[in-house]
Design a protein around this nucleic acid. Structure first.
Lengths: 195, 195, 195, 195
DNA sequence: TATGAATGAGCTTTCATTCAT
DNA sequence: TATGAATGAAAGCTCATTCAT
């Protein structure tokens, strides 16, 4: 599992995070014990405390790692000029992130309502949500939508719902079809307007 | 509340359920201890076990109580003939339920990803979701929408997302405005169609 | 179960003792709860405390009741003049007592090694044992046995063992055959003597 | 004992078993708590669960350890050819085992009637008893005794009774004298026969 | 007398965390 | 760095006992 004779600390840290993620996804954060993680990582329980100060810190590290992936994806999308295309890519990238990091999102959704678990993270999560909504608002405004802020919130809620449902049933949930429908709804011209 | 002259068992059971609900909502199901609930109810810890066989059973009872409320609301709506009006009322009733039972939905969303917690309930929850989607599908079909099943899933996801966001921030979230927007999107005539 | 309109306190007390005995025999004293007893008696749990100050006290009462039966049986036997006949009847009466009060002896043997349970009773039990041994010693001495005290202890041990084995397997254990053999060993003339 | 430089897991396990045995013997299995055992072992309560999955498992381990001692003693005796000598040694070895493991036998006799405690062990115990009786039957048959099976049961009961009485009062009980008397009764020639 | 709701101490067991090696 | 024995603070739950009715 740990491959080299003298594995890099970074590698082991990442290995532990991966193992923790699998464990958290399989049983939920609270039901996962340090020993479950260590077992998954084929490592002694005490070792975790050389790389993380606590079980919570492992979760935090997972959130940070995911935040990095999100940032990277969004930075990519930010270079697109055409707002229609930008929104399309933004949604597709979001779906890709969720699909490729399904276990993380499973864990993330699982702790979303557990204030005690998210202690110290709640603020970041809320802030991040606000950023999404602002970003969507800008894009929808650029697209000439009539109620960009409201639609942005609605879009955010829809994405959250769709991704959660996908994560709950990844085998059969029609993620792509739904996503494309959302994209069409927002980017195809429409004559209907709210009076 | 407790220690009254002739306490009705039903009353105390309900009082305990309310206390448990508040405690679960405040800290999450897993982080809530029996002692937290008892404290909230101003009762000795052991008393819970006169009314419920386990901590899980308290959660189950909360789910059942909510299911009853949902059934009642839906039965009411079922009497409406006009599909446009029916859908409208269905969504408004849903929002009312969530608003009036905010703490329950907070708890419900919080345990949704914790399979171990939902043991025995997971099946019901999944079945209930399927019922909603089918119901929405029928209604949207009656409304002449072109892709009723897909739109039904999308609607369900949107509602889930909106309700969750509302529950996470009930003070400032524009639940009604968003809901009315969803209703309009679905019930106002439109010429745009997916080919 | 309680038959009269105004049952005599004595009757209810006895009914509770019977129920407790059945419960203790079925599950062991420590594993039996007040509620088990109350259920067996078809009575509310609190009622026991009108007749007995504690669970232990119920056990004590059972011991006392049994002691009474033993005394009565032994008083009967005491009237027999012939030592051979006396010993024979003594053993047969003992076996009858065990057979007719099997559940009590099951309980009694079950708590024999639990000092904390027997608190306050241990002394009586020990005293009672000494009485048996003395009684046997006298009888064996009357019978002209060469080592009456040693044989008395041996006889007491044999009876204890036989009765325990009987109680552990009342369906198939050959209690009578073994008892008659013991009687014969002690009462038939023999030339073999320890030098 | 604990907290040594390189404690051997086996040593600590044995230390915990010894402590548990002392605790069980002092108060009975059911009345002994994990904390009593831990206190006796001068160890934190949680440590027991590194070595045993449950309190019951500690008891089981004690039974297994004793079974090993019994097997070893009986294997030794099995090599003796002369039946008279064999029976003599068998009884002496039994007494030695009981004397040297007095606390275990105290515990063993204490749980004998508690089916719930013996769950899973009851069968083994019953089987073991049957083995003893068969063994005694063979030996008594070899000795030319007229009713070997009945006498075997009687012998087993006597031993059980004697050992229990010894264990209840190890200071003053004349274990050896009684044992030698039993041996003599069985091995000295006799003309007395049951018709 | 009789009930059973209510109490609260205490049980076994779990587990994040520490630390000697 | 890595181990896993050891700790001890809860956790969920049980149950003898009390007491208002």
């Amino acid at each position: 599992m740990v491959r080299r004779k003298h594995p890099q600390p970074k590698e082991i840290r990442a290995h532990l995070m991966d193992s923790a993620l699998r464990a958290f996804a399989a049983r939920g954060y609270e039901s996962t014990t340090i020993r479950h993680i260590a077992e998954e990582a084929k490592v002694a329980a005490g070792l975790l405390y050389h790389y993380f100060p606590s079980k919570q810190a492992v979760l935090m590290a997972l959130f940070e790692r995911s935040a990095g992936l999100v940032m990277a994806a969004f930075a990519e999308v930010a270079t697109i000029a055409d707002p229609r295309e930008k929104l399309t890519q933004l949604l597709r990238e979001s779906a890709r992130l969720v699909r490729e990091n399904r276990e993380f999102w499973q864990v993330s959704y699982g702790v979303r309502f557990q204030h005690s678990v998210l202690a110290g993270l709640a603020h970041d999560v809320a802030a991040q949500s606000a950023v999404y909504v602002q970003l969507f608002t800008l894009l929808l405004s650029d697209l000439g939508r009539p109620h960009p802020e409201l639609e942005a919130r609605l879009l955010f809620a829809t994405l959250d719902g769709v991704f959660q449902h996908y994560v709950l049933d990844p085998e059969t949930y029609p993620l792509d079809a739904l996503l494309e429908r959302v994209i069409d709804n927002l980017t195809l011209p429409t004559e209907k307007e709210i009076p």
